[in-house]
Simulated assay, not measured.
Amino acid sequence: MDLIELTDVEKVFTVRRRAGLLRRERREVRAVDGISFRVPRGEMVGYIGPNGAGKSTTIKMLTGILVPSRGRLRVAGIDPSRDRARLARRIGVVFGQRTTLWWDLPLRDSYGLVRRMYRIPDARYRANLDRCVELLDLGALLDVPVRQLSLGQRMRGDVAAALLHDPEVLYLDEPTIGLDVVSKARVRGFLRDLNAERGTTVLLTTHDLTDIEQLCRRVMVIDHGRLVYDGALDGLHTVGGSERMLVVDLERELPPMRDVPGARVVRVEGPRQWLAFPATRSAAPLVAAVAERYPLLDLSVREPDIEQVIARLYGDGPPRT
């Protein structure tokens, strides 16, 4: 079952700006331009793009904050803009730069208000809160006012608040912003367990591509309001034309190895040489060719940097896949 469905969705804003001393002109800005995609129940999807690409506009339409200018949009069978109250009970939202917690209240009191808002049964509330507190390491923070929390602590608090009512869909905007390495690993592990154990559908937007690599098998890339890629994370390397790197350590310094089929020398430093080859190709034939023709000490294969792949997608604007 598809829990999220978008068909030819557009969002156009009218912007007015000064065009003279007494005159203003109007122009239309197409923030989202004909996006279509479906997310099955229980899937974790990365939704990424540069600033201004249309990510936040899409999320706001999915939550009912904004109304689409055109197209069809459903979440759990509900039109978000027509029935926001009913949808709110089935979704959780975490915006990295905006808290849903009460600024002057301790975390514990904020969670109590969330319980009343969503009318969460006591037993379920206690079970969910205990689980979140343990896995997100919030025990020492429950009696601390939100305004005294660091950004990373508040982010963990917001994630817990979004999950107390057992939402079917969780929208996460920069969920690991401001977290140290240990806290990031804790949040990622928590989200993996949540998805595996409860089948929660997750739509994740982030600039930390390690989040995407560790959590999502599917990724959607949006640029200038259009979906430029939708598929498996590994498929980004094919679309983006990325390359793997074979790093070869020779017994002695030699001229560049230009006779290795399917590879090109991109760098030479003494006895070490770097050979680039398509990310979709196996390294085995290259390794065999190098070992056969050259005095080899050691070698390694370096995978392409996903950040560079996505940056290339932004710049080239390939057709939808």
Rank of each mutant, 00 (worst) to 15 (best):
4 I>K: 10
7 T>K: 15
12 V>H: 15
14 T>I: 09
14 T>N: 12
15 V>G: 04
18 R>G: 04
26 R>A: 05
26 R>W: 00
29 V>R: 12
44 M>G: 07
47 Y>W: 12
47 Y>H: 08
48 I>E: 04
52 G>H: 06
54 G>C: 05
60 K>D: 11
75 V>M: 01
91 I>R: 00
92 G>P: 06
92 G>V: 01
98 R>Y: 03
100 T>H: 14
103 W>M: 04
105 L>Q: 10
108 R>M: 08
109 D>L: 13
111 Y>P: 01
117 M>S: 10
122 D>Q: 14
136 L>A: 07
137 D>E: 14
142 L>Q: 12
145 P>D: 06
147 R>E: 14
149 L>G: 08
162 A>R: 03
165 H>L: 00
168 E>F: 06
177 I>S: 13
177 I>E: 06
189 G>L: 04
191 L>Y: 12
200 T>V: 10
202 V>P: 05
205 T>S: 15
210 T>P: 07
216 C>Q: 02
220 M>I: 14
221 V>W: 05
224 H>D: 10
224 H>R: 15
225 G>H: 00
228 V>S: 01
233 L>G: 07
236 L>F: 07
236 L>T: 06
240 G>M: 03
249 D>W: 12
249 D>M: 09
255 P>H: 02
256 P>Y: 08
260 V>Q: 13
260 V>D: 14
263 A>C: 13
263 A>D: 15
264 R>Y: 00
280 T>P: 03
282 S>W: 06
287 V>E: 03
290 V>G: 06
294 Y>I: 06
296 L>S: 02
303 E>P: 00
310 I>V: 14
312 R>C: 07
315 G>P: 10
